[in-house]
Amino acid sequence: MPVPTGHSPAATGGGEQQQEALLVDSVFTDIGQARKAVEEHLASECAWVDLSGVLLVVSELVTNAQRHARGTWQLRVQAEPHRVRIEVTDPVPLPPRWRQGKLDGSGGWGLRIVEQCADTLEVLASAHGKTMRAQWLHPDRAGASLN
């Protein structure tokens, strides 16, 4: 079954070619389908990125939103020539709670895994919810800014 997703054009700034963003919403899909959509999108748009690391981050951030933020989330993937940005937005404005990971299956590892896989991890909060943003910078652009 195809995953209902959306695509929206997004300017990359600096005169670079415009890229389409992949949008996936929890109303229409589940975590596994979201991963598959991201995999297909990045395979064609951004072959330089560590796809297994990106998919692990997608799994962790979407699982956290599913578990801790009333189950609704939106995933946005922006692939650019120099950067990949993954954003998971949910309706809970409270920042995530960093916990000590436990080996008893109760969790606490997800955000630490995301921090290790992505070049940066940010929490963007507003009165309407929060966005967890993970980014990867192209290896040839190691000294460039991620903004």
Rank of each mutant, 00 (worst) to 15 (best):
M1P: 11
M1N: 12
P2T: 15
P4Q: 07
T5I: 14
G6D: 05
H7F: 12
S8H: 14
S8D: 13
S8Y: 12
P9G: 08
P9F: 13
A10I: 12
A11C: 07
T12C: 11
T12F: 08
Q17H: 14
Q18Y: 01
Q19W: 03
L23W: 03
L23Q: 08
V24S: 00
V24I: 00
D25V: 11
D25K: 04
D25G: 03
S26C: 05
S26H: 02
S26D: 03
V27M: 06
V27Y: 10
V27C: 12
F28H: 12
F28L: 08
F28A: 14
T29K: 01
T29H: 08
D30Q: 09
I31N: 04
I31A: 04
G32L: 04
G32W: 00
G32T: 11
Q33K: 06
Q33F: 05
A34C: 03
V38C: 06
E40I: 02
H41G: 07
L42A: 02
L42F: 03
A43S: 15
S44I: 11
E45N: 14
C46D: 13
W48M: 05
W48G: 13
W48S: 08
D50E: 14
D50P: 15
S52P: 01
S52I: 10
S52V: 13
G53M: 10
V54L: 05
L55R: 07
L56Y: 07
L56R: 09
V57W: 00
V57F: 01
S59G: 12
T63H: 11
N64P: 02
N64V: 01
Q66M: 12
Q66W: 11
H68V: 00
A69S: 15
R70Y: 13
T72A: 10
W73R: 01
Q74N: 12
Q74H: 10
L75Q: 01
L75I: 01
V77L: 10
V77R: 10
Q78R: 07
A79N: 05
E80Q: 15
E80F: 06
P81E: 04
V84M: 02
V84Q: 01
R85N: 08
E87N: 00
V88A: 05
D90N: 10
P91I: 09
V92H: 00
V92C: 03
L94K: 11
L94R: 12
R97I: 14
R97T: 14
W98K: 09
Q100F: 05
Q100Y: 04
K102V: 08
K102T: 14
L103R: 11
L103F: 07
D104P: 03
G105I: 09
S106P: 01
G108Y: 04
G108H: 02
G110T: 00
V114L: 07
E115M: 13
E115R: 14
Q116M: 11
C117R: 15
C117G: 00
D119L: 03
D119V: 04
V123D: 13
A125C: 13
A125L: 08
S126M: 04
A127F: 04
H128L: 12
H128G: 04
H128C: 05
K130A: 06
T131F: 06
M132T: 02
M132C: 05
Q135G: 09
W136I: 06
L137A: 00
L137P: 01
P139Q: 03
A142I: 09
A144F: 10
A144I: 02
L146N: 06
N147P: 00
N147T: 13
